[in-house]
Nucleic acid binder design. Structure first.
Ligand SMILES: [Mn+2]
Ligand SMILES: [Mn+2]
Ligand SMILES: [Mn+2]
Ligand SMILES: [Mn+2]
Lengths: 229, 229
DNA sequence: AAAATTTATTAGGCTTGCTTAAAATAGATT
DNA sequence: AATCTATTTTAAGCAAGCCTAATAAATTTT
């Protein structure tokens, strides 16, 4: 069975939205797809008739097992192509999302499996998001928002919360990328901004907007660690 | 300006057909596109209104300079992706045409220029067809049909006449590929078949149908070469 | 040159994916 | 409970790309 690029994009959008919310609203989908609610309703009827999602009018929407399987396969293709573009063709992580948005619709399963092998079975894409394997299995991230860490915690940047070139432009400027180690030095209650220390011991300030979109893996909490001998 | 995959396919088909014939007929295009003549007429009107081709009813069709420029760019993408699939991902030359038929519609110009660089600026695709450069320049092949060579000529296979998996299946079986050196030993007037010698001195028979789809570059004509001392 | 045949175009209709405007339903407010 | 408001659906229509059937033009045959 082959589906249009438009249907694949809808499935992917429902998949991402139902990670955050449980069930997905028509308006949320319209916003994500940059289209109108009426168009979404039309498409939901079609996808329902193909048994790719559960949908009752006025009740929101959820993927079926088959819909989810397909959505994950699109995500897999998207992330493998992004990895290719950065790792092999030398693009910056802020440039690749748009191209992957097209490449993810190339249909050959064999092509994507060969590409994955060629790339050396990468675990995550250039933005730190996990790449599903060819069975659709996907590692679950234990990362938390940088915003939520207490002062004096050391952590490593694991992924970014959205795919916009804007957030990556800012991170490039601040010399922050996936894998960068940070220590949270101060939190300002006035605007929820953070002061963090980089590996070179320089200090930078991070807005609440940015820190809520930066996901990190905590390393250790210096405040709670026992005294060194 | 961005064009649909369908329009790009039409432009490419007109381009290939007008290489052989000068001007292209509606029916020839319908056959090449695997569609109906009525659909072709519809599309020709649209492409004409976009000034991509010259078209007068009942008079056939020819690309404009802009149409040709676009068509060559699609051909460039098609062949670079084919090269990638064979050289980097290890596909056989008989497997890649279908995938390239989709990949050629990926729009990013920067992507294809980076890919070309990554591949080392190949001259020809896996089937021996020339790859246009990023200015649309394309080497002209001096190859001739194997069928046309006189007996005792040595030659090197330069490209195949169509993109079907069937011809490549046969060539794989006969251990013939781009770059293989052949000597025409005999021509049979009954069915126009040829007997040719391979580099390992084995002899094989080649049908007229195959030899008219095999393009070669003549090396030297042994019959005319002077006596060795 | 007329007739027959081939080739191409027009007419009318279908599906997909989208739009705006109007109507219906659900949820919140009084 | 009635009313207001936000959300969602329905209705009607458009463009792209295809189809079949009918018609017209060009070409070949007689
Ligand atoms: Mn992405
Ligand atoms: Mn996409
Ligand atoms: Mn194509
Ligand atoms: Mn080719």
């Amino acid at each position: 069975m082959k589906y249009s690029a438009s249907k694949e994009n809808y499935l992917k959008a429902v998949f991402h939205l139902q990670q955050a919310q449980g069930t997905v609203s028509t308006n949320a989908l319209a916003a994500a797809m940059q289209t109108r609610a009426a168009s979404v309703t039309d498409m939901l009827k079609k996808l329902k008739s193909q048994k790719l999602l559960q949908y009752e009018r006025y009740k929101g929407v959820k993927l079926t097992a088959e819909g989810k399987r397909l959505a994950i396969h699109i995500v897999r293709k998207h992330r493998l192509w992004e990895y290719f573009l950065v790792d092999k063709l030398g693009f910056g992580w802020e440039e690749v999302h748009e191209m992957a948005e097209e490449l993810e619709h190339i249909s050959s399963k064999k092509l994507i499996d060969r590409l994955e092998e060629y790339l050396g079975f990468p675990d995550t894409d250039p933005h730190g998001d996990p790449i599903p394997d060819n069975q659709g299995r996907m590692r679950v991230s234990k990362a938390v928002q940088l915003q939520e860490l207490p002062v004096r915690t050391t952590c490593i940047i694991s992924h970014v919360g959205d795919q916009s070139a804007e957030i990556m432009e800012l991170l490039n400027h601040l010399r922050l990328t996936i894998g960068t180690r940070l220590e949270v030095k101060r939190k300002f209650s006035f605007d929820q901004s953070l002061e963090v220390m980089l590996p070179d011991e320089s200090l930078i300030t991070i807005s609440q907007h940015l820190s809520s979109n930066l996901f990190v893996k905590p390393e250790k909490n210096l405040a709670l660690s026992g005294p060194e001998s």
